[in-house]
Amino acid sequence: MSQRCSLLVKKFDQAKFDLAAGALTEAQLDELMHAALCGPAQVRQRLLYIHAAQPSVRSPLISSASHEPVPGSITQIDPLVEELPYGCVFDAILDGWRVVQFPDQRAPFEDREIDIIGYEFILEKLEAYDA
């Protein structure tokens, strides 16, 4: 099923649920009609920058930064976030993320000094958003 169809089915299911609960609104019906008649929602790229301790997709995660494709979204260090979203890159793949950049193992190597932490993977998910 295309992403557009998938989004429409979700909206339709929600409308049926709300109808059964007596909570369906005219605005919802307008939105459903708009989604059905006015073409696909916009497909946008969600980005997830992950740093793993080593270049393997099974290596433990040490950092995560998500970039949501919605106006005003920000990516920052948050003291209220206690856990990283995945244990390793492989877990993110199982959750539907697709790796679009793997770390370069040919990076300069110094056996005495240390610099940045971990190995960077960039992942994406393409998802439909209301235009």
């Binding site: 995560s64 930064a65 990516t75």
Partner: peptide, 8 residues
Amino acid sequence: NYANLKGQ
């Protein structure tokens, strides 16, 4: 490209 880091 880092945000929350393990061990921070």
